[in-house]
Design a protein around this nucleic acid. Structure first.
Lengths: 121, 121
DNA sequence: TATAGTTACTTTTAATTTACAAGTCACTAG
DNA sequence: CTAGTGACTTGTAAATTAAAAGTAACTATA
């Protein structure tokens, strides 16, 4: 274990890892196909650079993503979700559903699909 | 609107309201049938009293719960989820599922059901 | 009648985390 | 040789959280 658990509750334990203002947004971006530090940093919410770096480290330590060098000279990295991380898509989906229903003006799944296409080409 | 939105993303907007270490645990407890400040405070994770008070206010302002006086002399309150709040049960369920699968030693839905029975009598 | 206890908070202060700006390092392109 | 890019790190101020204690209104017990 890397982060200490507050209790044996699955919800609490999950929030120990992912429960803050930024972490799930990083996961969201990775689920949408973003792969580089730069791409993650450029999201509209504007995550601070030090926070992004720290969260990537934590998510890697938790086995939710892995970092791989895809190029030397200059060194560049890809961040990709593990299976454990990919399975957070279920969580995202219900969050999108709730958000669409209860928060006015939020992007629908159809609009989100378009963003994904822009990212993945 | 009560909390400013970082972006029109439903996930980000939802996290603006619920995305921190404690808020979803309060919702969890209410979904499990807890109704009073005391009961919420007594959860095993040990939420600080000032944080609990602030979160209850925020969740009420967001229309996720409502506070009602069920007794005068001495004044006592019940906190109950609105329909908007109750619909977070879908989110909880997938979180439990993910937590059970990926975090060792977390309570299963069967065990959680028992806790709910202890609360609701 | 006095003392202790309960519930629902608020207040104070310290500790921790976050935000913002700038800087570093390795390399490329002009 | 200068500017630019990507992936960070560092420093410091601002904001948030944690821990402990306190308050207010009332009840129950000795």
């Amino acid at each position: 274990m890397t982060v200490p658990k507050r209790s044996p509750c699955p919800v609490a334990s999950m929030l120990d890892i992912l429960g803050d203002k930024w972490t799930l947004l990083v996961v969201r971006d990775l689920l949408m196909g973003k792969q580089t530090y730069k791409a993650l940093q450029d999201s509209p919410e504007g995550i601070p650079s030090n926070i992004l770096a720290e969260r990537l480290k934590r998510l890697e330590a938790e086995g939710i993503l892995h970092k791989e060098r895809y190029q030397a000279n200059p060194v560049r990295y890809h961040y990709r979700l593990t299976d454990k991380g990919k399975e957070l898509s279920d969580v995202m989906q219900v969050m999108v559903k709730w958000g669409n229903k209860h928060i006015a003006g939020t992007y629908t799944p159809a609009q989100i699909k378009q963003f994904i296409q822009q990212i993945t080409g």
